[in-house]
């Protein structure tokens, strides 16, 4: 991969991203001041339960929010040093699929049912390579299919002739057809059977290494994070409440109570197999977020200050968290 060293090793730098969905009836504060960076060749895992704002964050980076309701209120998303939020339509189309590609959650619905899979891969290639010949396109389609473990002969088949796992491989093939620098994968295995999940994950992992692609891996599965991520950002109610390298997040040191709760609610990830303790309660209503810490209403260690004051970020090395419990100890 031709790395452009002079741009530093940060590929994507998102800063203070704020996004709302505004309808006639209500305003949903979906993303509230999210910041993170993705380094070249590295994978950031964005973790959080449903409704945390993970998809919204991804769509904002692609600038693909639903045009009628979604609105980016502020923030930056610098990709290779250029702020995507300032791009016009033409520039956006030039980077979408070419420099930044996205894999959606459900392979059943993210393929066009009346177009052959080969045509769908070819479409992305042709969109970004106007002068390319038909034979060349066909060859590249075959190559990329081989890469994701599908026989090139099957390029002339329709999506309904493939199984779920195969479909997701096709989706991955489409995403990687132009060898993007950044791949955003939005819960790429959630819709698949457990056995197939592992296969698809392996395909992603292998390709990422082979092509040197950086990745934003959105998931609610800590197992996936442990297997393929370098860094982790834990998202809750539109905020990143804790982030850091995988080792820090998975080590039994000081953690945000929500992160700790996440680990306690999955079986046997940290060495000692404790009883499963699901986090009680629900995420706050995004149309009416609490004034203090967004997690306070569900937090077993909440103090008086938590309900009043929004916690500041505490940083120690590469590890940072936003919680009043650790407010005094941070560097």
């Amino acid at each position: 991969m031709p790395y452009r060293e002079n741009l530093g090793d940060v590929l994507l730098n998102v800063e203070d991203l704020r996004v709302i969905y505004k309808t006639d009836l209500e305003t949903v504060a979906a993303v509230n001041g999210v910041s993170f960076t993705i380094k070249r060749g590295k994978t950031l895992g964005l973790v959080g339960e449903t409704g945390a704002g993970k998809t919204t964050t991804a769509l904002s980076i692609m600038r693909l929010l639903p045009s009628t309701t979604g609105r980016i209120l502020g923030g930056k998303a610098e990709f290779n040093g250029r702020d995507i939020m300032k791009f016009d339509d033409l520039m956006l189309r030039a980077i979408r699929g070419n420099s930044i590609a996205m894999v959606f959650q459900d392979p059943m619905t993210s393929l066009n049912p009346v177009m052959t899979v080969g045509d769908q891969i070819a479409e992305t290639i042709e969109t970004h390579n106007e002068k390319i010949s038909k034979n060349e396109v066909k060859k590249r389609v075959g190559d990329i299919l081989t890469l994701v473990g599908i026989m090139p002969q099957r390029m002339s088949e329709y999506p309904h002739q493939f199984s779920g796992g195969m479909k997701q491989r096709v989706v991955i093939a489409i995403a990687l057809a132009c060898e993007p620098e950044l791949l955003i994968a939005d819960e790429p295995t959630t819709a698949l059977d457990v056995t197939i999940q592992a296969q698809v994950l392996n395909v992603i992992k292998e390709l990422r290494e082979r092509l040197g692609t950086s990745m934003l891996m959105i998931t609610h599965d800590l197992g996936i994070v442990a297997r393929i991520c370098d860094d982790v950002a834990v998202m809750y109610a539109g905020e990143i409440i804790e982030s850091g390298p995988v080792e820090d997040i998975f080590s039994p040191k000081a953690h945000h109570p929500y992160t700790a709760g996440l680990f306690d609610s999955v079986p046997d990830l940290r060495s000692d197999a404790k009883r499963l303790k699901p986090i009680p309660g629900l995420m706050p209503d995004p149309t009416n977020l609490p004034p203090g810490c967004v997690f306070a209403p569900r937090c077993s260690r909440a103090m008086d200050i938590c309900a009043r004051e929004h916690p500041k970020k505490t940083v120690s090395g590469a590890h940072s968290l936003a919680c009043h419990l650790f407010g005094g100890t941070g560097a």
């Binding site: 693909l64 979408r96 959606f104 459900d106 393929l111 045509d119 489409i174």
Partner: peptide, 25 residues
């Protein structure tokens, strides 16, 4: 439909989306 979203994420413009994803369906 998500495949239209996916096509947009692939950089397809309006004409392409209408011609190859919406009309055929």
């Amino acid at each position: 439909q998500e495949y239209v979203e996916a096509a947009k994420a692939g950089g397809a413009g309006s004409v392409r989306i209408i011609a190859s994803h919406i009309i055929p369906n």
